[in-house]
């Protein structure tokens, strides 16, 4: 489904270059839930953002569902409609109502009729449990509700993969659960998911595989079971000691 090979992303700033993503090669299968964890600045968000072209990479390659990112003929907008993304800061469109947030891209990108887009939007709002808020503007919603709308917005495009970039980090603690519940439900339904998160409980419960990144590299990967109980690398042990 997703294959990255020797992915390299360099940030240049103030005379120093940082290898934010350094030689990352991995494969993610259809229906797999991969959780990426690591200390801040480890390049996990940058890696995620490379997967839908929000960051351009400097070397290596990404192939998603047969679409080759390095091929100059590839239309990145076509890739993006198949790869949904949920952001830390939700990034809902504040000038659109909740329902309009979900229908906008359906009508202008997927070319669906307004009626079709709305019925799909309402079904997804019901699925994430906030059907009654469809006419509200995002600013009237709590953080947890906004993030659930953002998930519905991504789902409305019928993506093959959804990328989650620290979806619960900006939430008040009491709202984390409602967002994670929606994500767990998606995982059960077989959605392919790549999740950058600090929620270790979620990682342990839902992930099929965990990638541990540090300084732009994948340091260790494995099942949650082996990762949390018998980490092999020193850096992994250090990290787990700090957070658990």
């Amino acid at each position: 489904m997703i294959k990255t090979s020797h992915l390299l992303k360099i940030f240049n700033g103030r005379g120093q270059t940082v290898r934010a993503v350094d030689d990352v090669s991995t494969e993610i299968a259809r229906g797999e839930v991969v959780v990426v964890i690591g200390p801040s600045g480890s390049g996990k968000s940058t890696f995620l953002r490379c997967l839908n072209g929000l960051e351009e990479f400097d070397a290596g390659n990404i192939i998603i569902d047969g679409v080759d990112f390095a091929d100059r003929r590839t239309d990145i907008n076509q890739v993006r409609r198949e790869v949904g993304m949920v952001f830390q800061q939700f990034n809902l469109f504040p000038h659109k109502t909740v329902l309009e947030n979900i229908t906008l891209a359906q009508t202008i990108v997927r070319k669906r009729s307004p009626a079709e887009a709305e019925s799909k939007g309402r079904a997804l709002l019901a699925k994430v449990g906030i059907a009654e808020k469809e006419a509200e503007y995002p600013s009237r919603l709590s953080g947890g509700q906004q993030q659930r709308v953002a998930i519905a917005r991504a789902l409305a495009m019928d993506p093959k993969v959804i990328l989650f970039d620290e979806p619960t980090s900006a939430l008040d603690p009491e709202m984390v659960g409602e967002v994670l519940d929606v994500m767990k439900q998606l995982a059960r339904e077989g959605m392919t998911m790549v999740v950058v998160t600090h929620e270790m409980g979620f990682a342990r419960e839902v992930a099929d595989r965990i990638l541990f990144m540090d300084q732009g590299r994948i340091v260790e990967e494995g099942t949650p079971e082996s990762f949390f109980t018998t980490p092999r690398e020193e850096r992994t042990k250090l990290f787990l000691n700090q957070i658990l």
Binding site: N52, L54, R81, Q89, N91, L104, A105, V109, A154
Partner: peptide, 26 residues
């Protein structure tokens, strides 16, 4: 905020659509 256009782009909108539907109205 940059997140607005990133969200729009992540939904597959091109830069023109992002400008017209998301950035300029705000």
């Amino acid at each position: 905020p940059k997140g607005q256009s990133e969200a729009a782009r992540s939904l597959g909108m091109n830069s023109f659509q992002t400008m017209v539907y998301i950035v300029l109205p705000q």
